[in-house]
Design a protein around this nucleic acid. Sequence first.
RNA 1: GCCCCAGUAGCUCAGUUAGGAUAGAGCAACGGUUUCCUAAACCGUAGGUCAGAAGUUCAAGUCUUCUCUGGGGCACCA
Length: 551
Amino acid sequence: MFQNYLKLRIVKILDKLKIKYSKADNISLKYPSPEFGDYATNAALVLSKKNKIKPMILAKRIAVRLAKDKKVDKVKVAKPGFVNITLKKKLYREVLQTIQEENSEFGSDKQFGQNKKVLVEFVSANPTGPLNIVNARAAAFGDTFVRLLKFLGYNAYSEFYINDAGNQVDILVESVELRYRQLSGESIIYPEEAYQGEYIKNIALKIYLKYGIKLLNLSKKERFNELLENSLNIVLNEQVKDLKKFNVTFDNWISERKLRDKGYIEDVLTYLAEKGYTYEKDGAIWFTSSKFGDDKDRVLMKTDGNVTYFVPDVAYHLTKYERGYELLYDLFGPDHQGHVPRLKAAITALGYPADILKIIYLQQVNFFSKGKKIKMSKRKGAIYRMRNLIEEVGTDVARFFFLMRRANSHLDFDIELAKTQSVENPVYYVQYAHARICSIIRKAKMKNFTLNKFKPDYLQRLKEKLEFQIIRELSRFPEILKIAAITTELNILTQYLTDLATLFHNYYHKIPIINSDDTELTMARLYLISSVKIVLVNCLHLLGISAPKKM
RNA sequence: GCCCCAGUAGCUCAGUUAGGAUAGAGCAACGGUUUCCUAAACCGUAGGUCAGAAGUUCAAGUCUUCUCUGGGGCACCA
């Protein structure tokens, strides 16, 4: 909370001392280990050479001035030239008051995002079957990321792109038709190329219950369209249901079919051709993507007259630009990485800035059950459904597990571990900290301690080292959120929660919070732990995880 | 062959917009804590050539180059 303030102070001091500095010097202001103080800066180390002053001497000069600041308690200079800053205890108390006043808004900073219009696209699964556990990681990550951006003052939207056109959809309809015919009494050998999953039978059954054998009387084209509409609806509804169970909602749904109907495909082909970025070879139409940083040129239209998957995707991304977003995030699996250079090439070719498109790669998730890796193949119907995962381990646990690791790391998800409700499971650890605080507050109420009678002066009674450590951790929350948003490393949030929970559990064991003989001290401590509660709740909420009052 | 990601304790992983001080957690191992607000917890001990090498720097797990190992990607599939 005080980082900005101290940064400005240091800059002012450097000016006064006539010390040369620039942004490139990377002056840091970090949280050192507690023994050194609250903040530490390397300014003297970084600037000594440029200004021809020994680091220790420069550090001392900075320290002397900094010590006079009204928020600073003491400043110490250490070994090579660090300046360690300790803030006044009064500020610690103000942190708690800020948290209580801002409550569910604590940590938010509407200035930070400057209302920038941001789009985050994720999941975007084919509507050819239920969502699987690979989609689940993207769902957890994307949803949390959007919540975070919104909290930080971005005008952020989540979007699901429905790939409801092309080959796979045709196979879906054909598969459903065969199952439908089987239900109608025809004896049909179900081919291997068709989708094998049980869900195809369910779709066919639903359609059969709705229409009976009526569809068989329709023309081939009409039947296809009926089956298509119905199948897509059923599958999409199921996907939405699963996402809802996973606490994931989307602001926008975009249909590829509708983009095609509106003529966006032809537009892309025309634009590229007009600019001279296409040519014909071997009966296909190619895009000169190699001119824009791609390895080689890519086919836009195949010899059979159909466009490749690439074209509607470009069309779709164009709409993102046309809709006025200033920052775009795509969450992709590792299998899409080869696809990105050509996408960016097309965007550049069409005159849009490709650099505002940020790709976040979510590495593969390996699921283990009883030490064995679970294998999946959609075609064979051997999928591990997102719904099954939610039913097995619960939304809270699943979301937390997905967000424990960096996006760039492969994730080993141990189902058995996730199911255990014990120490090993970090989710329970964090939630339990919250439940425990609620329990203490309940207990306190029974003994007639409520915060209604609280007075700020009572906070002066907080003197324990651990209490200051906790407040220090709480004061970091707003900065933690910003770092997470900028780096797109959401594991910082789960990490933070675990750290805060540890501090609290620790405190609980060492220091009795309710002390019937000392009302003021009890009040102060209740105020402290209810502040911890607020931060836990706010952070859990960003992660889409519940904060139970009892466990 | 080319491109992307990873390699840190026995295991799973952190190590932060920006290179800083003695590299941290959890699990597993070993030892301890229960008249007390939830033991779903807490405390302590042990555990490391940060894959390897060279370089840049006052300072490298972090940056650069090379090598090794693992995963993924290199379609007129989506």
